[in-house]
Design a protein around this nucleic acid. Structure first.
Lengths: 154, 154
DNA sequence: CACTATCCCCCACATCTCCCCACAATGTAC
DNA sequence: GTACATTGTGGGGAGATGTGGGGGATAGTG
């Protein structure tokens, strides 16, 4: 499974449709059948999973105990802001309005390939988190995450 | 079996009827034949199971020890407020009045896809539990589910 | 038996979604 | 440069969906 990478800016029309970047489509597995699941991200952006990768997430969810309060709370709040999407014949996604509100996306959306998933940002929110992250602290983060011998990982 | 997901708000008419969300219907297995079981939830909401998934719940219940007081109490109180429902020709559910009372649903019902079942909430009750869930704990929950590299799974 | 309440079917209709067509912009081959 | 394919953007319209109300069949009550 190759990683999604790169950043692509597209306009959103007044029906909430946005073209899916052609270069990202080349990374989507044919198994996914141009079907996706989109949901609220932890940051003020949206997460987009091709179907085959989303199924791995569901597999994890299905292992959570449904007869505990905490388990039910996890499942409810995770799934309630998720929706299935497909590409139309022009390779566009129709963003649900509640997710556009959440992410403050209106006329422009920025796709960011982020490994196993794709993130979709509004320009404003993206600029804001960029400004909060100085180059120095990015260096620090990088070292914290990548530090040590990568090959020893797990 | 795909998970139920998403949140949908519908109005309840003065006959207690409410449209079953079309997107959720796409997730219901044809095996279920548009037949459901509805019952009191453990939270102040209603649980709605398509027939095929309800049968899995019954299977679980049947494994509970019937000769212990606790076991009998659980079974009795779980099942006593359960009813069978079907969709009418306009894909609506007729909510039993005792369940509308319990869940405090009157003119508006919110459907939440929660994995193997569907929850039905009144706006007021839902807002209350939302307020009790801080963003931090949502982050924690999220990381429990999504944490780790998905590709390493299994 | 009459009366009433409830259920469920049908019809009507406003709204929304999605599919299709058109075309502009961009990239590529010759 | 020109022709052609791919990609990005916009809009119109058919069909699906959500909502309300009327009315007939059925069952429960006095």
């Amino acid at each position: 499974m190759p990683s999604f990478k790169g950043q692509y800016e597209h306009s959103v029309d007044n029906k909430g449709r946005v073209a899916f970047p052609a270069k990202l489509r080349k990374t989507v597995s044919p198994d996914a059948q141009d079907r996706f699941t989109i949901l609220r991200g932890l940051e003020p952006c949206l997460y987009l999973y091709p179907q085959d990768r989303w199924e791995l997430v569901e597999k994890k969810l299905s292992k959570i105990n449904n007869f505990s309060l905490k388990g039910r709370t996890v499942i409810r709040n995770f799934l309630r802001f998720a929706e299935d999407l497909s590409l139309d014949k022009q390779n566009r996604l129709s963003l649900p309005s509640h997710l556009m509100d959440f992410s403050e996306i209106d006329s422009t959306a920025i796709f960011i390939g982020a490994g196993e998933r794709i993130e979709i940002w509004s320009p404003g929110k993206l600029e804001k988190v960029d400004n909060e992250l100085s180059f120095e602290s990015y260096q620090d983060l990088f070292e914290q995450v990548m530090g040590g011998n990568i090959e020893e990982e797990e």
